[in-house]
Amino acid sequence: MSGTGRTQGGRSRLGSALSGLAVAVGCVLFLGGFVWGAVVYQPYTVPTDSMSPTVEAGDRVLAQRIDGSEVRRGDVVVFTDKVWGDMPMVKRVVAVGGDKIACCDADGRMTINGKAVEEPYLRTKGPASPTAFNATVPEGQLFLLGDERMGSLDSRVHLQDPGQGSVPRSAVSARLDAVAWPLGGLVERPAGFAALSGGVSQPGPVKLVVGSVALGVALILGGAAYGPVAAVLGRRGGRGARDRVTADA
Rank of each mutant, 00 (worst) to 15 (best):
W181R: 11
R169W: 08
T136C: 08
V167R: 00
V76L: 00
G98K: 09
V209H: 10
V245G: 02
G163E: 08
M150V: 03
S152N: 06
Q164G: 04
G238W: 05
V55H: 04
V93M: 03
G58S: 11
P138V: 06
Q202F: 07
P47L: 13
G126E: 13
P190V: 00
R235Y: 04
L21K: 08
V25K: 02
L176G: 05
E188F: 11
F143R: 00
G98P: 12
L21G: 13
A194K: 04
K91C: 08
V93K: 00
Q141D: 04
Q42P: 11
S152C: 05
A128R: 03
L196F: 06
R189G: 09
C103F: 07
V78Y: 06
M150K: 05
L176D: 04
R175Y: 09
V245A: 10
R123S: 04
G108A: 03
Q160N: 15
P182Q: 09
L159P: 02
S129R: 03
T54R: 00
R72L: 07
D49I: 02
Q141K: 10
S16R: 10
M1V: 14
D248Q: 12
A241E: 07
P43E: 08
G223A: 13
M89T: 13
A174G: 02
C27T: 15
G26C: 13
G126N: 11
G126I: 01
